[in-house]
Structures are given as structure tokens and as C-alpha cells.
Nucleic acid binder design. Structure first.
Lengths: 234, 234
DNA sequence: AAATTGCAAATCGTAGACAATATGGCATCG
DNA sequence: CGATGCCATATTGTCTACGATTTGCAATTT
């Protein structure tokens, strides 16, 4: 828009500050750092160090910590500090169950209101994943997989559902970041995708929930049973 | 425990501060104020006024605001302040759908692991609600109803699920607090309760989800269709 | 070697200050 | 009389500085 902005990041930073408080910017930044994996789970997040690194004072950093704590991404111990949340295998299973329930619910709600355009879009994604799958192209498969789930969850038009779902996905990233990348078996994954689309196409809420729930549960099983987890705790 | 504490509130406050930060205490306090209904939805929460009222400085209050915002209880507008979250009818429907999905998921998960003792407890609650229902005793029915839902959600042992579920319940309180108390029809409610317990007793995950989901959806319908909502917005 | 003491560092909360922004009333003008 | 612009006030957003409390570690003592 404006031609006088010197750097993109500078204009972005200013624009963001117009519509958002500094604490929220800091929160997004810390979240990026956490999910980026530079700090491992259990790592300590030093208030002052983070404030200095981000060029802000302690206030906004502490506010961001509270928001991240509410979202389950950090652990706060009084008089000790803030740490990247540790996700035990048991916790991961619990979060996966919630995610499965939310995704199944999304499928169920979507079955009642899905448009033909949405069905076409989902079928296209499944077809693309078929191609990526047969080529063993994980680099192509992952973004398609995310797009598929996003299309369903956001397709419901229920932002509360979408936000809650993605909050669970974020929390699960903390577990995966510990070294447990889910092993193969993504061939089966697309079979499950097709079952979901079939149920949606049939506009069968009942079957849609079951297919969506089962799909995430299968993903959970793939992770939970993926070896003994070198970094497992508890 | 200790006989030398002068006041309960004083010892409690100290104990709480040992295991929790001041910001979290403030958060709980503000949440209590919000859900208590003294501040109506859309009401402004003045930083300094709240800080003075609670006897703390602005810092902890601002931190509490961030946590409450993450939980969907307040709205934050830059340079304007913090307001009690407004829940439109559309929002309430969305939250109800998520709550229904979570409760159904709880029923489904519980069906796989429920103990005979838990079944007995649930049946007892249903029986008590039958009595309260036939007596038209709402004062007795409400706590039993909450206990029933709690027993199921917490009975899964999944704290993430329970926390997420109760977060939705809290957000819905913002809607009910606007004057829309759900009308009668709580006779049907216990029929649905019985259906849930039957499915759990049969250890049928499929039927348990359906019964739990349908029960919350029925509650949603009772509210959504309860007249035209004198205080409705948007 | 084990327990105690002492100290450095970090966190937690407060207080005060300041700029930026929004609010509400008032004067001015059409 | 109504609309517009301006100004005083209040509030937010952020920073800095300070004191109090706690923790963790090291040194000392028994």
C-alpha cells in the first residue's frame, strides 16, 4: 500500500501494533520460538533474557506467559519461572482423544451443511494426497494433509471449534518436538480420508463422526506405538 | 490443619500464594466476579479500579486479563480496554456444538473404561434427579445435574477433556447471564440422562456418544428456542 | 560425608513516570 | 437547532527502578 515503508517487517510490526497489544505480539513470537523447537520441552524461559531478545520490557513478556499458560504451552512454577510445557505420553494420549472428539464433531457438524463445492475441494485434496502418497513424497503430503483437516474444521464455520481444535494440535507439537515423529503408515491415512469424504458426501453425520474420530485415533496409535520413545518421560 | 490461623481467608490466601502466582489468584477472582454476573456482558473492566479493589497493582491484573482473554471470557480492544465477552446467539450455538462434541466424546471414552461403581453412582444421580424432577424442585435438580455431567467428564480421567469442557460451560454462562435462563423441559432432560447411562452400562461407545451429544444439543435447543431473547444481540 | 550457613541470582510484585490514545464536554459555526 | 472541531481529562500501554522473597549453589563446619 504505502510506498514509503522502508522494510516489510517494520511496516508489519507497526500495523500489528495498531490492532494488537505488544503482549500479543510477544505471545505469538514466543509461541513461534517454542513450536519452532529451539527450546526443548522443559527448557526454562528466562523473563529478562526473552525481554531483551525481543526488545521489550518484562511486562509484556509476563503477560504473554499467562496467555501461553492458559493455552497449555508453558508451565509456570511460582518463584521458579516459566518452562516449556512437558507433554508425557499419557498427556499426549489425552490430548489426542480430545482432538479426535473435536475432529469427529467437526465432521458431524459439517455433514449437515456441507456444500457441493466443499465436497469437490475435499475430493481434490484426497486425490492429490493419493499422488503424493504413491510417490512417497512426504514433503508434498504433509501440507495437503493439513489443508484437508483445516478445510473440514474451518468448513463448519464454527470458529470456537476450529480454535479449540488447533489449540490441541499446537499442544501436540510439543510432544512431537521431543523427537517422536510419527512413523510410516500414511498410506492408510488417505484411505481414512476417503472414508471421511464418503460420509460427508452421503451427508451422514453419524458415519462422519465415526470416520473423523477413527482417523485421529489411528494417528494417535501410529505415534503411541512408534517405538519406545527415546525421550519419553513418566 | 493448623489451629493458630486467625481467619480462614487469611490462611487460604497465604497457602494459595505459595502454590500460585498472584496473577492467577487475581484471575480466579475476576472470573468469579464476571461469572457472578455483577458485571454484565460488554461491561468495561477498568484496570486501576480492579487493582484497587483487589488490593494489588496493575501488573497482575493485566496478566490476569491475558489469561481470561485466552479462555474466551473477556474481549480486549487495543487502547480501549478489557470488556466482559459478549456472546451472541450465534456464538452460543457454536459453543454449544463444541460442548456437545466434547460431552459426547467423554461419554464415548468413558464407555470403554467405566467401572461398575461409576455406573452405580450415575444411576443414583439419575434417581435423585427423578425425585427432584417430579417435585419440580429446581433448586435440588441443578446441582445434581452438574454433578452428573461432572462425574462423566471427570470420570474419563482425561483432564484436558474436562478442562476444555468446563471452559465451554464457563463461556456459556456469559450467555445465560444475559437473562436467558433456559425454560422448562427439564423433565425430558432426565430421560436423556437415563439414555446416556444405559449406553454406558451397555459399554457401547457408539451409542454413548450419540446419547451425550444429543443431550447437550437438546439443551441448546431449549435455550435457543426459548423465546426471542429480550437481550439478544446481532 | 552430611548438614548447616551464607551469598549470588532470579523471580515476583510494586510504584512511579511517560507517551499515545480515547472520551466527553464545550465552544464555534453553518 | 444541529453538526463540527477543539481541548481537558482519563485510561491504556509500556518502561524503568526498587524492594522483598525465594531458590540454588558453594563454602564451611561438625
Amino acid at each position: 500500500m504505502s510506498a514509503q515503508t522502508q522494510t516489510i517487517s517494520a511496516s508489519d510490526a507497526l500495523d500489528v501494533l495498531r490492532s494488537s497489544s505488544l503482549a500479543q505480539v510477544v505471545q505469538a513470537e514466543i509461541e513461534k520460538i517454542i513450536l519452532g523447537g529451539t527450546y526443548g520441552p522443559g527448557a526454562k524461559l528466562n523473563e529478562k533474557a526473552l525481554a531483551d531478545r525481543l526488545g521489550v520490557s518484562r511486562g509484556p513478556v509476563r503477560e504473554a506467559f499467562q496467555a501461553l499458560h492458559a493455552r497449555g504451552l508453558v508451565e509456570m512454577i511460582p518463584n521458579r519461572g516459566v518452562f516449556v510445557q512437558q507433554i508425557s505420553r499419557h498427556d499426549a494420549v489425552a490430548i489426542y482423544d480430545v482432538r479426535a472428539g473435536l475432529f469427529g464433531t467437526a465432521c458431524r457438524l459439517l455433514a449437515d451443511r456441507i456444500t457441493t463445492a466443499q465436497i469437490t475441494g475435499l475430493k481434490a485434496l484426497v486425490a492429490q494426497m493419493d499422488v503424493a502418497g504413491s510417490n512417497r513424497d512426504l514433503e508434498a503430503y504433509f501440507p495437503l494433509n493439513i489443508a484437508f483437516h483445516s478445510a473440514i474444521v474451518r468448513g463448519t464455520g464454527n470458529t470456537v471449534l476450529a480454535d479449540t481444535y488447533f489449540a490441541m494440535v499446537s499442544r501436540l507439537h510439543l510432544f512431537r518436538a521431543r523427537g517422536l515423529v510419527h512413523g510410516g503408515g500414511f498410506e492408510n491415512s488417505n484411505i481414512e480420508h476417503r472414508a471421511i469424504v464418503d460420509a460427508l458426501d452421503a451427508r451422514d453425520p453419524h458415519a462422519a463422526f465415526e470416520a473423523g474420530f477413527a482417523h485421529v485415533q489411528a494417528g494417535k496409535a501410529r505415534i503411541v506405538t512408534s517405538g519406545d520413545g527415546p525421550l519419553a518421560n513418566a
